[in-house]
Amino acid sequence: MPETYPRQGALDHLRLDARAVDDPGDAGVVMCARRFVGKVNLRGRPTKRFREAAGGALGFAPPVKPNTAAGAGGVSALWLGPDEWLIVTPPGREGEVIEGLRARLGGQHAAVTDVSEGRAVIGLAGPRAREVLMKGCPLDLHPRAFKAGDCAQSTLARALVIVHQTSDAPAYDVYVERSFADYLWRWLEDAATEYGLAVIRG
C-alpha cells in the first residue's frame, strides 16, 4: 500500500483516537478499533494434502475442530465451516500469506481470497464484555461453552459477525462487515454504557 495516501479505517470517522485513554481504570468494558488487520478467506476440503500445504504456508495447520481458532507467529486461522477459514494476519502481512498459500496450494481445488478490507475488527474486553455480547448475540458465551480460542459466526444485534474469544479475561475480537461497522460500534457502545466504557487505541 502506498504511504502517500492515508488509509481510512471503517471507524475512523468516529475519531476514537481522540477519546482513547491509556488506562481504562475500573471501566467494565474496554473497546478499540483494530485497524487494517489482514484477512484472507481460505477454502478447501481439509484433506491431508490440503492441510499439509496450508500448514506449510501458515506455519500451522488450519483447525478442523468446528468453531475453534489456531495460530502461530501472529497469524491465526478461524474455522468458519468444514471447508472455510478466515486467516487473520497482522496489518500488512496479508500479501505474503496469500502468496504463500497460493504457491503451496497450486494444483488443488482451493481458493485464497483477500478480504482484508471487507471486514472491520472491534476489540471488546473488560470484566463485563461477556454481558455486552449477551445483549445481542444468541450464542452460549458461558465459560463452560465458549473459551479463549473459540470462534463462531453468529448475529450480534442486527449484524452478522464472527466472534473470536482471544483470552479468558474475557476478551473478544468481533469481525463485522465493513459497512456495518459504524452501526455495530454504536450498538456496542450503547450496550456497554451501563457497565462503564473505556475506549483504548487498537
Partner: peptide
C-alpha cells in the same frame, strides 16, 4: 429493547460516506 432510534436498523455506509 434497544432496537430503537439509530439502532432500529443498521445503516450501511460506503467507504466514502463521510
Amino acid at each position: 429493547g434497544r432496537d430503537v432510534d439509530h439502532l432500529f436498523d443498521p445503516a450501511r455506509r460506503t467507504p466514502m460516506h463521510a
